[in-house]
Design a protein around this nucleic acid. Structure first.
Lengths: 347, 347
DNA sequence: ATTTAGCACTTAACTGTTATGAGTGCTAAA
DNA sequence: TTTAGCACTCATAACAGTTAAGTGCTAAAT
């Protein structure tokens, strides 16, 4: 299985490009005759076969069975994307259309992310995904305690990026709303004075408000414990996935087992979160190709991801598109790049 | 296609029961010989064939092709569930286990609903779904305005059922946090005095606070417009669906097209919301069987739903389980009933 | 030194035939 | 009223044969 290191000359590149484009067009293994007839390389099938043998040694293409044509491998796709493909620039008009699809007024972050995943799906015609930014590190803007019923207090925390999180907590001693207001007032004072995240706040409280009542401590403990503890739970909410059913109709998923793998791969949010998470901390886009080292679970699918970053750099997440490996990279990649940038601007 | 009205006597019932149970066990069309040999009805295959012909005329069973055994129809399943099946009671021990799976402390409603869908999935071994209760009709408990940045105000509304909703709105005139606090203080006074939902509040404001500044009106207008306008959007969030991939491995979905239909049916949330919505306003459970009048899109699947109702009757939603039509109704139904009741208690 | 034509070979996919087995409906006997 | 017997239908699997696509290799041509 180890690829032989081969020198890829001009002719090799041409043939590889022809195979990849031919495969994109027909979704069938591409043979030497087909390349010779449809791409004006001025080479006979026999010559092309020779070159194909070289490309196969190099690990760029493979044969599904002995007497079949060739199909690009993950390595082949990567080479294509990096070196062979001509990226189409996204037109100004298209940019305007994208911007229009976001109704910007009166939005909470939830619906922006939702809308982003839809925009990605609509424009790429594949499945758009959006990983929400982490909130745990963002500074707090406002805290509110609301007594819902005896012993039940709703803790609402507003972060500087307008994200609102809330938890209902149970306290053993009943506390009046008035008293709760005093607590929250005190905390908001602290927050206003200095920039602090949820963990910082806890430290500050411990070191500064020694005279606080016990209640106060227990509420805060519960609150923070709960927040940090529920992150894992919230992971589900953090992922916005567009319609996966469009992928089902792609010709490579005509086989029974392939379909099941596809559905399972997309429903296995853990893996997708892992892959998108890898991108989140990058500065540039990444491409995962099915059966690749990083995404070995399924072949035939590709995931293109790009990070986004809010202007104040407090918010960091990533977006992506899942499609068949033979998707139209030259169109999809600029769309993702643009939407990632645009999303960074508006959040 | 019209079913002939037939009298179902004791023997018919026995044979139908045998066919249904046989089909559940083997997932294959059930023939007369099989029934005769495996169920001690003391009848020869030939007699059973005669009875089968009657059941087929009545529309309770059908043949996939001429020389095949019989499979229950939707009508057959319904008759089985209503008249033939012995419902297993859920044991006290099982009840305890269910209760334990809910960690009750420090929860927001989101995670409770999430957990419910998981519990449904785990216990039934199929796909659990939960439709969140409508919030638009619930009374308000608390309102808060937080200035996020110039011209951007975050509106947070807490309802009496501890549900928190928030929207970021844009206002043309910049308002200081102090002034916002005065506004929210005023609104909270009103809310405290009388029970009112979001629409009521608007009416009260219009008729009572004539001296309010223009800003105040415009904020409120935006806020309420946005809330009522975004309900449709939020529908997506309202549905919690358990793992659908478990259904893929059921033997009836071995065929290519069937799998696609299955995935599409489950991903088409509109239909599921419609079906669950039908149940929400009912007082008792309902069962939808695939290819039925109400759920014609897919055959082979069944949806069992039950409404839940909070103690104060303010919250009304529904839960359900999607599984193959030959699922173990006698076990799944009591589980759903119990969880629906339990969920009503804890929210 | 390349390139290519020619040829033998491999494989998947399709075709047609046949056999098998499961299950039926009907009729006549018990 | 029940059942044994029989002719019939249809799906499925197995088998052999054919076709078409595509390959690798070698020897001839450029």
């Amino acid at each position: 299985m180890e690829d032989i290191d081969i020198a890829i000359n001009e002719r090799c590149r041409d043939v590889l490009l022809a195979i990849i484009e031919g495969y994109f067009a027909t979704v069938n293994p591409v043979g030497s005759k087909f390349v010779s007839e449809n791409y004006h390389l001025n080479l006979s099938p026999a010559s092309i076969r020779n070159i194909m043998a070289v490309l196969e040694d190099g690990g760029y293409i493979y044969q599904p069975h002995f007497s079949a044509g060739r199909i690009p491998t993950a390595k082949g796709y990567k080479f294509y994307i990096e070196s062979l493909m001509k990226t189409e620039k996204i037109s100004k008009k298209q940019k305007e259309t994208i911007k229009k699809t976001f109704r910007l007024e009166n939005r909470n972050i939830n619906s922006i992310l939702h809308q982003t995943s839809r925009a990605l799906s609509d424009l790429s015609h594949y499945t758009g995904i959006v990983l929400a930014p982490e909130t745990s590190l963002v500074s707090l803007l406002h805290i509110e305690f609301v007594k819902v019923k005896p012993n039940n207090i709703l803790v609402i925390m507003v972060f500087k990026n307008a994200i609102v999180e809330n938890r209902l907590i149970y306290v053993y001693k009943d506390i009046k709303q008035n008293e709760l207001n005093r607590y929250s007032g005190k905390l908001n004072e602290i927050i206003e004075k200095r920039d602090c995240g949820i963990d910082d706040l806890r430290d500050i409280i411990e070191s500064e408000i020694h005279d606080a009542r016990e209640n106060f401590y227990s509420i805060l403990n519960d609150m923070i414990f709960n927040f940090t503890n529920n992150i894992d739970q919230n992971m589900d909410n953090c992922l916005y996935i567009g319609p996966e059913t469009v992928l089902l109709d792609e010709p490579e998923f005509s086989n029974n087992e392939q379909i099941k793998l596809l559905v399972k791969a997309i429903n296995d949010k853990k893996i997708i979160i892992k892959l998108l998470g890898l991108t989140k901390s990058c500065t540039t886009k990444r491409i995962f190709i099915g059966s690749d080292a990083e995404w070995s679970e399924i072949s035939g699918l590709s995931l293109i991801t790009a990070p986004y970053l809010s202007e104040d750099k407090a918010l960091r997440g990533s977006i992506g598109v899942i499609g068949p490996s033979r998707m139209n990279y030259s169109q999809v990649i600029p769309i993702i790049d643009f939407i990632a940038e645009f999303l960074g601007e508006i959040i």
